[in-house]
């Protein structure tokens, strides 16, 4: 059991921090906007192929490294298709589009949500007869940047994965009927893709929570009311201590999620626990960060609320706390005592 990062991993963090810092733009409310300059910087860093084998065009690192990069994105509030692309590449397997995605020459995202349907990893109303697709995916992330899309559909032989190189969007909506789709394969990589995507989102949440708490602590030190800094009020500092506790517990769970996937990419029990822990911590820290700032935390020109917005998006991506808790609850009968290290 070892929670320490290697020197290479520390160097990667520094390089990612530098590249991301140079290319970030000020956050704005609303739908995420694709930042091509940032994307190319990530591609140059090798981040887009980081967890994939070298013989498949990747960098031969793993989920721990992907989580490190994601945390740096989260720390400065850079909204990118990072988790999406790593999922898409996982789903694509040997497909040629994977290479283009890893190089950054083509933005590829997964389309896994159905409009007005609670999250499920299995498609319900998206179907295939073996060649053409039927159904609607919405919202598709970063649709405004005209990405290529990987999607799943239910057919006679179970769930299959399809690539659509040049989809036609209607806003963030993708009507699959009439789109030129290529059959990629079965759903053998679906669980791995979801686990990796969930981990990367959690890594981003970790960075966002760190920054939200950091800003809050600085504000409590510098902002004066009643003639004294806010940190003179225990009602505020006690709550900041609870935020720190939530952050550190989530950090442990996210690091453990990363090392668990490095060992077993299919370990969705650990990933569900991590998602629940991260979801609860994200809500706690995000809400308290705004409250402890007061009015300034509500403004678009100040950073803290944007972290809360991003944490809220992450909570609702790839299954929320309710979904993952339900999945875990259904399995509590399968074992007695929790055993994390065995």
């Amino acid at each position: 059991m070892d929670f320490k990062f290697t020197d290479e991993q520390d160097s990667l963090r520094e390089a990612a921090r530098d590249a991301i810092g140079r290319n970030r733009t000020e956050p704005v409310p609303g739908d995420a906007v694709h930042n091509e300059k940032m994307w190319q910087a990530l591609a140059e860093l090798g981040a887009l192929g980081l967890p994939f084998p070298e013989d498949a065009g990747g960098m031969g690192a793993g989920p721990i490294e992907a989580m490190i990069v994601a945390a740096e994105l989260g720390r400065v509030g850079a909204r990118t298709a990072y988790a999406d692309t790593l999922m898409a590449v996982t789903l694509l397997g040997q497909d040629e589009l994977a290479g283009a995605a890893m190089e950054g020459s083509r933005l590829v995202v997964p389309a896994l949500y159905e409009p007005m349907r609670a999250w499920s990893p299995e498609p319900a109303r998206v179907t295939t007869d073996g060649s053409a697709l039927e159904g609607v995916r919405e919202p598709v992330p970063f649709a405004a940047a005209a990405p290529a899309v990987v999607t799943t559909a239910r057919g006679d032989d179970g769930i299959a994965v399809y690539a659509i190189e040049s989809p036609t969007f209607d806003g963030a909506r993708l009507d699959l009927a009439g789109q030129s789709a290529r059959h990629v394969g079965g759903d053998a990589h679906l669980r791995q893709a979801l686990n990796l995507g969930t981990l990367v989102l959690a890594g981003e949440a970790l960075g966002a929570m760190e920054s939200a708490l950091g800003l809050t602590v600085e504000y409590l030190k510098s902002r004066k009311q009643f003639g004294v800094p806010l940190m003179k009020f225990q009602t505020l500092t006690q709550r900041a201590a609870d935020m720190y506790t939530s952050l550190e517990l989530a950090r442990s769970a996210i690091y453990f999620g990363a090392m668990s996937l490095a060992e077993d990419p299919e370990d969705d029990l650990t990933i569900s626990r991590m998602k629940v822990i991260t979801g609860k911590a994200g809500k706690h820290i995000g809400q308290e960060a705004i409250q402890l700032h007061g009015g300034i935390g509500m403004t678009a020109e100040y950073a803290v609320g944007h972290y809360t917005a991003r944490l809220t998006e992450i909570e609702h991506s790839l299954g929320d706390t309710r979904y993952h808790l339900g999945r875990l609850a259904a399995r509590v009968k399968d074992y007695g005592a929790l055993d994390l290290v065995g």
Binding site: A253, F256, R273, L328, R331, L338
Partner: peptide, 24 residues
């Protein structure tokens, strides 16, 4: 009830992993 148990197991996992992390 099973959701409460599952949630406490998540909380426990986070705590135990933190014990292991800071002990190091």
């Amino acid at each position: 009830v099973s959701a409460r148990i599952a949630e406490l197991e998540c909380d426990l996992a986070a705590l135990e992993l933190t014990v292991l992390r800071v002990a190091a």
